[in-house]
């Protein structure tokens, strides 16, 4: 439940021991505004700077120029307000599922916030239940499937009720069926909590299915080239919305945008106005 403003953001990586001229510019003069409670997805070719952007939003790395404001405040390092779900789950393998979910809650408690001890345990179990993992509280990550691990990671990211959820290709390592289940789970959670979600993906379909807005990023230098409003009705109210014409048009339009920047100078052949308005049907 936070607004994120990115102003004139540039991120350069210096090769160690080398001078400025050999620096890699991962992101250049990027401006972006993500509204409170928005489900924002970001697509772009490999290496265009998506993870770099997410790292900066998480406070795990700092911009070279420009600034990022969350609710008007500049970011100063990682914070429980902004949770991250990583592609490789990043669960602590020596902790049980419930103990993993408790990590953020316990940090919160050390800062004198959040629920007391008994309630923390209850909260961890509640969030594991929310992601459909009742009964695995005492299992270790290596005893869980990839899908279950990512569910634990989502529960861990949400249990302390952050304002922003940052996700870097969280479902990329999962099989198609599990991925679709988790997409729906994420939509359910978002509808319930109205957390601002920034979701990075390689999948155009995934971006359209989840996002209210899809930003297209291009590489060298990393920039946002287009932001597409997705005006589809409630994804889960329709059977197999991915096969509807409107969904297909969004998918194709984004595909064209992504490929236009692959082939130099060529313009997108599809006009945005061609996409049938989504408010109806």
């Amino acid at each position: 439940m936070s607004t994120i403003e990115i102003k004139n953001l540039t991120k350069k990586f210096l090769r160690s021991g080398a001078n400025e001229s050999t620096a890699v510019t991962a992101i250049e003069s990027l401006d972006l505004r993500i509204e409170d409670g928005e489900f924002f997805t970001l697509v772009g070719p490999s290496g265009c700077g998506k993870s770099t952007l997410l790292d900066i939003l998480a406070g795990l790395s700092t911009p070279s120029h420009g600034e990022v404001l969350v609710d008007g405040e500049p970011i100063s390092g990682p914070s429980l307000e902004r949770s991250v779900v990583f592609q490789q789950y990043a669960l602590f393998p020596w902790l049980t599922a419930a103990a993993n979910v408790l990590v953020g809650l316990e940090s919160q408690a050390r800062h004198g916030q959040g629920p007391n001890k008994a309630d923390r345990r209850a909260r961890a179990h509640e969030y594991l239940r929310l992601v459909g993992l009742e009964g695995v509280e005492d299992k270790y990550p290596h005893e869980l499937s990839g899908g279950m691990r990512q569910r634990v990671a989502i529960a861990r990211a949400l249990a302390h009720e952050p304002k922003v959820l940052l996700m870097d290709e969280p479902f990329a390592a999962l099989d198609a069926q599990t991925r679709e289940q988790l997409q729906d789970l994420l939509l359910d959670i978002w509808k319930r909590t109205r957390t601002t979600i920034v979701f990075i993906t390689h999948g155009i379909e995934e971006a359209v299915y989840l996002g209210q807005k899809v930003a297209v990023m291009s590489a060298k230098p990393g920039k946002i080239t287009e932001i597409v409003d997705i005006e589809l009705q409630d994804r889960q109210a329709v059977d197999d919305i991915r096969s509807t014409r409107q969904f297909g048009e969004y998918r194709h339009y984004l595909w064209t945008l992504l490929h236009r920047h692959g082939r130099q100078g060529e313009e997108a052949t599809i006009d945005k106005t061609l996409i049938t308005s989504g408010a109806s049907a």
Binding site: V84, F92, V103, S107, R156
Partner: peptide
């Protein structure tokens, strides 16, 4: 990655050390 995850879960440097 585990250290990064720990940081986003509110662990300070000492806690990263002792808990991760």
């Amino acid at each position: 990655l585990l250290i990064r995850a720990g940081k986003t879960l509110g662990l300070n440097n000492f806690e990263i050390f002792s808990k991760v």
